[in-house]
Write a protein that binds this DNA or RNA. Structure first.
Lengths: 140, 140
DNA sequence: ACCTTTTGTAGCGATTTGCGACTTTATAGT
DNA sequence: ACTATAAAGTCGCAAATCGCTACAAAAGGT
């Protein structure tokens, strides 16, 4: 399936395998294998292909007929999201957050942080400081 | 990224790695590697994961924050599409099409068929039966 | 028919995967 | 707090897969 779609997309752009391979930083031989489905591109290349044609990986994999890429136009910004949470829980940035690390954070990390804040919030309500479920947040 | 998301999805369903592994027909050890990103699932497993959680592969791969799967609710039906083409080109099913084979056909195959019909159509207009560009259609 | 471009296909070294077994960490019950 | 049990992380190895280079076949153009 993926081979068919790659071939179709390539031809509709009237490009040769060589040209595509160059875009993807692989040799033409390697690329050729994809189209005839003897090999599969690694995840990195798969995404490059999806990016190049602006289609979804689901389309390439044949999970959907909609080509339309669902890729975010405005990429996820961890710092911005962090501030939202700060506001929500009325936290003032005390300066002990390692901003550099936060740049690497995923949406899932953010959710963890929210869980943590919520936990702190609940704790402050009934002052039970024994539970150490979240004690290892220092690695955030 | 994919590991984080898999872990998040699994936990939000309150499942263990063992349970997930069973669903995906892999061993727990193998599954564990995915979450900590030491290994990557093959394409087949990736799609099983996406199917199981009903999210897009783009989401799993971190290309988008939208979980929503773009998978077709009504899957592509080759036979139905075939009939549309038959109608369009006024072909009557002479019974020499191997229906079983057609069940495997992709949208791209359909496009090829349309090209073929169009070719036949053009040929019939100026009776030039020498060009054998489409001579090998018997493998469709 | 001939030459050029493009595509398909081994062969092979190197990388990566999946499994099973073992270790470490977390959870629960008393 | 202590122990037992479950869950998650990690290692070594066999097997599968990948990417490259080189060669073969097909397609296109003159």
């Amino acid at each position: 399936m993926i081979g068919q779609r790659m071939k179709y997309l390539r031809q509709s752009k009237k490009m040769t395998q060589s040209e595509l391979a160059e875009k993807l930083n692989i040799t033409r031989g390697t690329y050729a294998h994809y189209e005839i489905e003897k090999r599969k591109p690694d995840y990195d290349t798969l995404q490059k292909i999806a990016d190049f044609y602006d289609v979804s990986t689901d389309y390439l994999l044949g999970r959907t007929e909609q080509q339309t890429s669902t890729k975010n136009s405005a990429p996820f910004d961890p710092l911005q999201e962090l501030n939202k949470i700060f506001e929500k829980y009325d936290v003032q940035d005390a300066g002990f957050w390692d901003i550099e690390k936060w740049k690497e954070m995923t949406p899932e990390d953010l959710r963890s942080l929210e869980d943590y804040f919520e936990y702190l919030y609940n704790k402050s309500k009934n002052r039970q400081h024994k539970d150490n479920k979240f004690e290892e947040v220092d690695d955030i």
